[in-house]
Nucleic acid binder design. Sequence first.
DNA 1: CGCAAATATATGTTATTACATTTGATGTAA
DNA 2: TTACATCAAATGTAATAACATATATTTGCG
Lengths: 150, 150
Amino acid sequence: MSIETDIKQATFRNPYHRLLVNLMFTSNWVANAQMHLLKPYSLTLQQYNVLRILRGQYPNPVKVSDITERMLDKMSNASRLVDKLVLKKLVQRTECPSDRRAVDVVITSKGLDLLKKLDVVQADYEVDLNSKLSDEEATQLSQLLDRLRR
Amino acid sequence: MSIETDIKQATFRNPYHRLLVNLMFTSNWVANAQMHLLKPYSLTLQQYNVLRILRGQYPNPVKVSDITERMLDKMSNASRLVDKLVLKKLVQRTECPSDRRAVDVVITSKGLDLLKKLDVVQADYEVDLNSKLSDEEATQLSQLLDRLRR
DNA sequence: CGCAAATATATGTTATTACATTTGATGTAA
DNA sequence: TTACATCAAATGTAATAACATATATTTGCG
């Protein structure tokens, strides 16, 4: 279904207007689906993203400021997000030895195990996308998104 | 810059994984920019979207349930969003004569005036996109997003 | 060195979101 | 018509987000 049908709007002013609306709508649509996948594991999308960032650097620590930077999903909740993950014992927080202002965060083995389980769920979801867009189309879509942010 | 550089992640498992991350990232990026455009007018992005939905039907009323449906941005805040807009006198709420459970919402002339001012701001933003993607590319991107939601 | 500016994180506050429940109205089947 | 399911909106609530400010540390310039 086209975005026009999905949001029941007959026309847009121009292709850019349509694109902006479509982008937000689609992203919400995906975020929603992902949230529901994560729900049985009591993880929010943001917490999941933080865990994946940490796994990407494992076993090296990542600073809270690095997490903030990579999320774009805005300022200063990184500290509290890490809080939540510490409470769940999915990450560990230690003072950075070279800069006592900073905090080193590392994913725990419990966190890694959880991500492993979620990899399966996520892979299934991605396979599902495969039936809608080919590899090439997914790549092309990604490249167009990159250009939009230039 | 590619999404890899933007979020400092070397690789993704597959094109779909990259696409999902890129989609969220880009959408946050756009939402953020839009939020800052709206800030001087003390409107949130959601409130702005509701106003545009109402303008689309003007002078016909739109039910709260219709607003909810078109937002996908989830359940049940539509009622409170309308509340906020009523407080600002940007919309008017009247009981639907044919179904007393429902509520008819109509944008006021003050609301229409505000949207008119925002049209200019929004148009400027869209012109800016024009320098990054051609009309055809914007259309193509939109179509790929449509297919992703199939 | 001494001190102001910058940096990293944490915290306080308010608004917004997600989710569940409530209230009232309508549709429908016995 | 009554009883019951369904539906529309509003409301309660807990979690989360946005934004400003605070606290502690480091950096760098005179």
